[in-house]
Amino acid sequence: MEERKWEDLEFDCLVSVLGRVGMESLLLDVPFVCKSWYKASLNPSCWKRLEWNFTLLDKFKEKYKIHKCSVDAFTKFVVGRSNGNCTGLILPNGCTEEVLNYIADECPALTYLSLPSRTLSCEPSIVPSLIGKWEHLENLGLGSCRNLFNILIQISLACNKFSGLRISFANIQEEEASAIVALLPDIKYLVLRGAWINFKNLEIILQGCINLVHLDVSNCLGFDPDEKVLELASHIKTFKCEGSMLEDYDDDDYAIDHDDLVYDYISS
Rank of each mutant, 00 (worst) to 15 (best):
residue 188 K to T: 11
residue 221 L to C: 09
residue 140 L to P: 03
residue 212 L to Q: 00
residue 211 N to W: 10
residue 262 V to M: 12
residue 226 D to W: 05
residue 160 N to G: 06
residue 169 F to D: 10
residue 160 N to K: 15
residue 75 T to Q: 02
residue 259 D to T: 14
residue 158 A to C: 13
residue 25 S to D: 11
residue 236 I to E: 14
residue 61 K to R: 03
residue 263 Y to H: 15
residue 187 I to V: 11
residue 97 E to I: 12
residue 113 L to M: 09
residue 134 W to Q: 03
residue 87 T to Q: 06
residue 230 L to W: 07
residue 217 V to T: 07
residue 193 R to C: 10
residue 167 I to V: 07
residue 266 I to K: 13
residue 218 S to F: 11
residue 261 L to D: 14
residue 52 W to P: 01
residue 96 T to A: 02
residue 1 M to D: 14
residue 37 W to I: 04
residue 181 V to H: 01
residue 130 L to E: 07
residue 252 D to P: 09
residue 14 L to P: 02
residue 112 Y to D: 14
residue 169 F to M: 08
residue 193 R to Q: 11
residue 115 L to R: 01
residue 232 L to S: 11
residue 54 F to T: 11
residue 174 E to L: 14
residue 256 I to Q: 04
residue 258 H to N: 08
residue 113 L to K: 08
residue 222 G to E: 05
residue 259 D to E: 13
residue 39 K to P: 12
residue 264 D to S: 10
residue 103 I to D: 03
residue 159 C to L: 05
residue 57 L to F: 05
residue 207 Q to K: 12
residue 146 R to M: 12
residue 89 L to S: 08
residue 167 I to Y: 01
residue 23 M to Y: 06
residue 137 L to W: 05
residue 172 I to W: 03
residue 45 S to Q: 13
residue 92 P to G: 11
residue 217 V to C: 09
residue 52 W to M: 04
residue 96 T to F: 07
residue 86 C to A: 15
residue 191 V to E: 14
residue 186 D to C: 15
residue 234 S to P: 03
residue 14 L to D: 02
residue 70 S to G: 00
residue 4 R to D: 10
residue 146 R to N: 11
residue 109 A to F: 10
residue 173 Q to N: 15
residue 267 S to R: 12
residue 253 D to H: 09
residue 181 V to N: 00
residue 44 P to L: 04
residue 175 E to C: 13
residue 10 E to M: 07
residue 42 L to Q: 11
residue 190 L to H: 01
residue 94 G to F: 09
residue 193 R to I: 08
residue 107 C to N: 05
residue 231 E to T: 15
residue 27 L to C: 07
residue 90 I to F: 13
residue 55 T to Q: 03
residue 155 I to R: 06
residue 21 V to K: 00
residue 228 K to Q: 15
residue 233 A to Q: 04
residue 87 T to Y: 03
residue 216 D to S: 05
residue 34 C to H: 01
residue 3 E to Q: 07
residue 30 V to I: 08
residue 121 S to G: 13
residue 219 N to W: 10
residue 209 C to T: 10
residue 170 A to Q: 01
residue 114 S to W: 14
residue 182 A to W: 03
